[in-house]
């Protein structure tokens, strides 16, 4: 085993150890509190098994909740990519477009998705409400990262093509886009993370009784902390897994980069 592999094994072991430490601390804390608001890990596990096998109070299984949330996330996220990347590229390439619309775009960026809930309830129905809120969360990180990455393209790379007589279209296709792709991927990763974090807010207003966010809200009304914590952990773990998958894909696709991401 070489040094790198040894370090990887060590990292995995430390992560497992940190999970065990948190579980032990949580167990001690809940034993000390003796309160239904702080169920021990064993009760959380029981709640998880119950949700996974028998479903929630309406018989909807945890897998169906997860699937419903994932579909909503990917719809909102795909819409954010479809709009954020081309718009970011266009505004990066023609900065006047951005400068002349900044007064509209920038204030919207600072309105948190949760503040849009009343507007979404009034203006939208059903699936579009979920997609809109998730889109809001994901759009700006993708759009801003794309925009900034275009303005930071190394001018020497552009000049390399220019002195050979490259057309503007060649420079955009073969210099600007390959050069900004890793930054766009980072923006997408951040956007996906924020989109996933918006799921509870989106499912508060969606109207349907399915989705991980909705699951948490259902059990919040019943003050059943075990199921609430299961819902929270599911959101956290899925977010973590999506991020890890993204990092692996980034590393593979952008293997020409010496540094891909902080992992």
């Amino acid at each position: 085993m070489n040094d790198k592999q040894k370090e990887q094994v060590k990292t995995v072991l430390y992560n497992i150890l940190s999970l065990i430490v948190v579980a032990v601390l949580w167990t001690l804390f809940s034993a000390w509190q003796q309160s239904p608001f702080f169920p021990p890990p064993a009760d959380i596990w029981k709640a998880f098994v119950g949700l996974a096998t028998q479903g929630d109070i309406e018989g909807i299984s945890l897998a169906r909740h997860i699937w419903a949330s994932l579909i909503r996330i990917f719809a909102g996220f795909a819409a954010a990519c479809a709009l954020g990347i081309p718009l970011g590229l266009a505004m990066g390439l023609w900065p006047r477009m951005y400068n002349r619309t900044r007064a509209v775009l920038e204030p919207i960026r600072f309105i948190p998705p949760i503040a849009w809930i009343p507007m979404a309830i009034v203006l939208l129905v059903g699936f579009s409400r979920y997609a809109f809120l998730i889109w809001l969360g994901a759009f700006f990180p993708i759009f801003i990262t794309t925009l900034l990455s275009v303005t930071r393209v190394n001018p020497v790379h552009v000049n390399v093509a220019k002195v050979f007589g490259a057309s503007r279209s060649y420079i955009i296709r073969k210099i600007v886009i390959p050069s900004v792709l890793p930054d766009i991927a980072t923006g997408m990763r951040v956007g996906l993370g924020i989109a996933w974090m918006c799921i509870v807010a989106a499912e508060m207003i969606g109207g349907e009784m399915i989705g991980v966010g909705r699951l948490i809200l259902k059990y919040a009304e019943l003050i059943r902390m075990g199921e609430i914590i299961v819902g929270m952990l599911v959101i956290g773990i899925i977010g973590f897994l999506m991020n890890e998958i993204f990092i692996v894909v980034e590393k593979r696709v952008f293997r020409w980069r010496s540094e891909v991401s902080i992992d």
Partner: peptide
């Protein structure tokens, strides 16, 4: 640039990292 064949080796590193 379009008509003549000009090459320029820059002071800064100029390899395109994705190629």
């Amino acid at each position: 640039f379009k008509k003549h064949n000009v090459s320029f080796i820059f002071q800064e590193p100029s390899c395109l990292p994705w190629r």
